[in-house]
């Protein structure tokens, strides 16, 4: 009977077979106003449970801050969303229709999830402009990449982003020669070039001066609305300056969620941060 059932499921006429379902060109469906669904996700490394039945929803156009002590699972969570780590259990949907767990990293990236790493990783030997050029949304298969030439439209797009991140003057400079803060912005610029729906930003202000921090805050706030932005950050002042909604992660699951004030007055959060 079981075989028959399997056969029946396989042969359902209203559905195409899995392997025939086009992976490329999936359209993001945000009709319910939510761009990311993480449900009941768990990951274990060597017996250590990095993520424990995590549930998290991100709204379209939202700017969400995620805080939590070290080892709370923030980076692992990003790894799962971007396809670097596969969870043991749980589901991850991008919009209504796209199952992230079936896709590879480049596929996820080309669908519109961009990620900025904790440690700024720009391509140091390349110029600022070339960094942006590489990140630009385009056909990224081998042959088209070999033949690619910048169009006028693409140049304009690069100029726009250069302006947004304030690096116009440095366009021909080697990325490796930029200051730490400039590298962080370049990374955000590279994210923007991908034209993502969802930006995952890991510790954008680590090691920044106050002025740089303020500029970054401005930048991130200006991005929200057009994009959904998830920011992982340790610096509470910075979080307060940008966040509407804050999620506190602890031991791999959500401890509290709400505005900065609500969260800061939550006794469990206080215990985790101060007591413990």
């Amino acid at each position: 009977m079981k075989t028959l059932d399997t056969l029946r499921t396989t042969m359902r006429r209203d559905q195409v077979w899995d392997f025939m379902r086009p992976k490329q060109g999936l359209e993001l469906d945000m009709s319910h106003g939510t761009i990311l669904y993480l449900e009941d996700i768990s990951v274990t490394f060597d017996g250590f449970r990095a993520i424990d039945h995590l549930n998290l929803y991100i709204d379209a156009g939202e700017l969400r801050c995620i805080i939590g002590p070290n080892g709370a699972g923030k980076t692992t969570m990003m790894d799962i969303i971007t396809g670097k780590t596969r969870p043991d259990t749980g589901t991850a949907w991008f919009g209504q229709t796209i199952d992230l767990l079936r896709l590879s990293e480049p596929e996820i990236a080309s669908l519109g999830i961009g990620r900025k790493f904790q440690k700024p990783t720009v391509f140091e030997p390349l110029s600022v402009m070339e960094n942006l050029e590489l990140a630009m949304a385009a056909d990224k298969r081998v042959w088209p990449t070999l033949r690619a030439r910048l169009t006028a439209e693409q140049r304009t797009r690069i100029d726009e982003v250069l302006e947004t991140i304030g690096l116009q003057k440095h366009r021909a400079q080697r990325a490796g020669a930029l200051s730490h803060g400039q590298k962080q912005w370049l990374e955000i610029g590279m994210l923007l070039m991908q034209d993502p729906y969802l930006l995952l930003v890991d510790e954008p202000v680590a090691g920044m001066t106050h002025q740089e921090m303020d500029r970054t805050a401005e930048l991130l706030k200006s991005l929200a609305g057009k994009h959904s932005v998830v920011v992982v950050e340790h610096d509470m002042d910075f979080v307060r300056s940008i966040a509407n909604k804050v999620t506190v992660l602890h031991q791999g699951s959500v401890l509290a969620e709400g505005t900065m004030d609500e969260v800061q007055n939550d006794p469990r959060v206080i215990e985790v941060y101060l007591g413990g």
Binding site: A109, G114, T121, E133, L134, A137, K140, L146
Partner: peptide, 25 residues
């Protein structure tokens, strides 16, 4: 000298970063 060459250099220096901006490394 092509864009592919720059992607190659990107892979050489930061492979997983290149993957995250959508290239099939």
């Amino acid at each position: 000298n092509s864009k592919l060459g720059r992607v190659a250099v990107a892979i050489r220096d930061a492979e997983s970063r290149t993957r995250f901006i959508g290239y099939r490394v």
